[in-house]
Amino acid sequence: MFPAIPVFPAAPDAQRWRRPFPGTPDQAAAARRFTTLLLPGCPVLDDILLTVDELVVNALRHTGSGRPGGIFTVEIARWGGSVAVAVTDEGAPSEPAVADAGDDAESGRGLRTVSLLATGWGWFGNDRSRTVAALFTPNAVSLCEAA
């Protein structure tokens, strides 16, 4: 299991949810369902779901999380109208990076898509554990605040 390291700013009104998933391809859909349940009515939910999907798929394809027995953890935070999502995986020797995929490429656009949808994104970690996070700011998600 991964350590409970806070990924997002500690705001007094922050709501946070964290859930581990088995590192199997079918769990990308489970991570999207988890996110959907936490952000009902959010006007940019589709962008957030695509971001979660891209981060999970990258974890499964490029890190130890996709190996037999692997796991990944999804964390969702909401505060002051902002929403942040993060996926913590079992690490890899390479660094996550935005790539320029060719027109005919079937992959390689995930983090470029995330960088275009989110206000910002970043990562920290190493070959044993890594967290990739994306932030959606109040301008984009002010209606995502808790009722």
Rank of each mutant, 00 (worst) to 15 (best):
E145F: 03
A118R: 03
Q27Y: 01
E75Y: 05
R130A: 08
L117M: 13
P40A: 11
L37S: 14
I5K: 13
A118E: 07
D89K: 06
P9F: 04
L135M: 11
V85N: 00
G108M: 13
T24C: 01
A99S: 14
V44W: 00
P20W: 00
A4S: 14
C144I: 09
D89T: 10
S129A: 15
F8S: 12
A146P: 00
L117H: 11
A4W: 06
G66P: 04
D89A: 09
L38E: 02
I71R: 13
E90C: 12
L111K: 01
A30Y: 03
T36F: 10
A14T: 13
T113S: 13
D53G: 13
D47Q: 13
A28T: 15
C42D: 08
R18V: 11
A86K: 02
T63A: 06
A31E: 02
G69T: 11
S94N: 07
G108C: 11
D104Q: 12
T119A: 14
W17N: 03
I71F: 06
S65D: 04
F8V: 10
A28I: 11
V7M: 07
A59S: 12
E95F: 07
P3V: 10
L143R: 15
Q27A: 10
A14P: 01
I48N: 00
F34N: 03
D100L: 15
S65H: 05
A30W: 04
V114L: 05
P68Q: 14
E54A: 03
D46L: 04
C42E: 05
E90D: 12
R19D: 01
P40D: 13
T73W: 03
E90N: 09
S115E: 07
F2R: 02
G120K: 10
T119N: 12
S129R: 14
T88R: 09
L38V: 05
A29T: 12
P6V: 11
L111N: 01
N58P: 05
V74N: 03
A59P: 01
G125E: 08
V85K: 01
P25S: 05
D127Y: 04
A101G: 08
P138H: 09
A134V: 08
D53V: 01
L45T: 02
C42N: 05
G81P: 08
D26V: 07
I48E: 00
G102W: 08
S115M: 09
Q27K: 07
E75A: 14
I48D: 00
Q15F: 15
G108S: 12
V56M: 05
V74M: 11
V83S: 02
G108Y: 13
I71A: 11
S107V: 04
L135S: 08
F136V: 00
D100W: 13
T63W: 04
D103G: 10
T63D: 06
G64D: 06
E145P: 00
P6D: 15
L37Y: 06
R19M: 05
G41Q: 04
D26E: 15
G69M: 08
I48K: 01
G122A: 06
L55P: 05
P25L: 05
C42Y: 01
L60W: 03
S129H: 08
Q15H: 14
G69V: 12
P25M: 02
A101V: 09
R16F: 07
F124I: 12
L45K: 08
W123A: 10
I76E: 00
A14C: 08
W79L: 06
P3Q: 12
N139P: 06
W17D: 08
A92F: 01
A86M: 04
A10P: 03
D46E: 14
H62D: 04
N139H: 10
